[in-house]
Design a protein around this nucleic acid. Structure first.
Length: 470
DNA sequence: TTTTGAGTTGTTCGA
DNA sequence: GTCGAACAACTCAAA
């Protein structure tokens, strides 16, 4: 029997049909074999637990959109591709580029090997507005500061591609013989099904992304510039996990935003997309960014080893309500509002004096939007060791931040219910409440809610001291 | 090569 | 209660 001629589209972080340049190209060439490979050669920490759950549901959604014809594999991508090539008459392999150091290395090798076998191998930009290699200073070196990167670099370049429609009349082949089922990928936890609470908060997949973004355009964008700082309000887009897995492209978001009446809210949203580009650029030019301080002088910083404090932070039991609220939002929903991410990160690094990598690792494991570029860049920014980082004296005070950005305490009360009955005045600092107030609210510090594990004022002062000698 | 202006997101203190 | 200044000094980007 003659082997079937196919073009492979290798899905990675582009789990969508719309605005998918590689898929469109493959479909134009002929019959498409759409595949996804769970790459076991990746370092274990390449995908966290929450991301795996997200991926499971996202793949399931994509499988549905492809009429049940997404073929799934698990293993070494090179071996799997070669194995497919034996069984099909593969004419070409198409994919959208990934930009993590490991992926770049892997894809370069695979591309070379497949080309040597006479295959057409083409990669596209499906997940960034501009290629990192495009955005450079006039002297050819990459930017290190966001504002010039975005204004002079990005905005002076060509406007990014307008979104492509889904490929029409696409002919698909399914690898009945070898494809695994989604369950066989074993992306969901087997025993303790903590993932169910996560699934209750989110709809994964391309159409869910579009629905959520439409909601944001309608209700959130007009309040974005100021409203995005209020964690109890639905004024943020919540696009981060969809963007990470490519259930939506930044091009779709950018062009939809630009269609709105131009104002400071739209500009602000677009510049947030710019921050995502900046993070990718930093990682592209500093492949060790997830491991090493961008500023070398931080290598000698005396971080504390404090397992108990780290654990209290992870579990949302620091006794500092806004920090605990954030960490519990993370645990329950796989997400945390960006303003609160800064607060809890500053608390870990500056008040507890714990290495930013501990925080980054925890976020990477528990966030549904965990993204090597954004996560590492943001942690380095907060810690002050990034290239374009916050000055060291910028230390968030979780009490002040609470009063300012959660004035009615709605967010904090939702996630820290055991102190919800405290009056606004003491909600963010229960240790300052008098005995009478506490007992009226049935709160016993050290029992129903922890004493703060650190003195905010003292730890701030010692952080300032420690950063001074760098 | 030198110079100049600027740099996401804050807090505290004192007037 | 509000407001401006100090908190440090350095690196980056561009003229």
């Amino acid at each position: 029997m003659q082997k079937e001629s196919v073009f492979i589209h290798w899905f990675r972080n582009d789990l969508r049909l719309k605005d998918n340049p590689a898929l469109v190209a493959a479909a134009k060439r002929g019959t498409v074999l759409p595949i996804f490979i769970d790459d076991i050669m990746q370092k274990k920490d390449f995908r966290g637990a929450a991301s795996s759950v997200w991926l499971h549901h996202s793949l399931s959604s994509l499988h549905g959109s492809l009429g049940g014809k997404l073929s799934l594999y698990r293993g070494d991508p090179m071996k799997i591709l070669e194995e497919i090539i034996v069984r099909y008459d593969v004419k070409g392999v198409f994919w959208n580029r990934c930009y993590e150091p490991y992926s770049i290395h892997r894809d370069t090798k695979i591309k070379k090997k497949l080309k040597e076998q006479g295959l057409e191998v083409v990669s596209y930009n499906g997940s960034l507005l501009w290629e990192p290699s495009q955005v450079k200073k006039s002297d050819g070196t990459p930017y290190k500061v966001f504002t010039p990167f975005y204004r002079r670099g990005c905005l002076h370049l060509e406007t990014p591609r307008t979104p492509l429609p889904s490929p029409s009349n696409i002919k698909l082949v399914y690898d009945k013989e070898k494809s695994l089922s989604i369950d066989q990928l074993k992306l969901l936890p087997e025993k303790n099904r903590w993932d169910r609470s996560l699934k209750a908060c989110w709809d994964m997949g391309e159409s869910a992304a579009a629905k959520q973004f439409a909601l944001f355009l309608k209700k959130g964008l007009a309040h974005y510039k100021e409203g995005r700082n209020i964690p109890s309000k639905p004024y943020v887009s919540r696009m981060s996990p969809y963007l990470h897995f490519g259930e939506v492209s930044p091009n779709q978001l950018l062009h939809a935003a630009l269609k709105q009446k131009s104002d400071e809210n739209v500009d602000c949203f677009c510049s947030e997309l710019g921050w995502r580009e900046f993070s990718y650029s930093l990682l592209y030019y500093n492949p060790e960014m997830s491991e090493k301080n961008l500023q070398k002088k931080f290598d000698s910083f005396p971080w504390k080893k404090d397992t108990a404090a780290l654990k209290a932070w992870q579990k949302g039991k620091t006794g500092v309500p806004l920090v605990d609220a954030g960490m519990r939002e993370l645990e329950q929903t796989g997400y945390m509002h960006n303003r609160i991410r800064m607060v809890v990160a500053s608390f870990l690094v500056k008040n507890l004096g714990i290495h930013w990598k501990e925080g980054a690792a925890h976020f990477f494991d528990t966030l549904v939007d965990a993204d090597l570029a954004s996560n590492s860049a943001s942690w380095q920014w907060v810690a002050g060791c990034g290239v374009d980082a916050a000055p060291f004296f910028r230390i968030f005070n979780p009490v002040t931040q609470g009063k300012k950005f959660d004035p009615q305490g709605e967010y904090t009360r939702r996630f820290v219910p055991e102190i919800a009955s405290l009056p606004d005045k003491h909600l963010f600092s229960p240790w300052e409440a008098d005995e009478e107030t506490l007992s009226e609210c049935d709160i016993k510090l050290g029992d129903t809610y922890p004493h703060p594990i650190v003195d905010l004022k003292k730890s701030r002062a010692s952080a300032l001291q420690a950063f001074k000698i760098l």
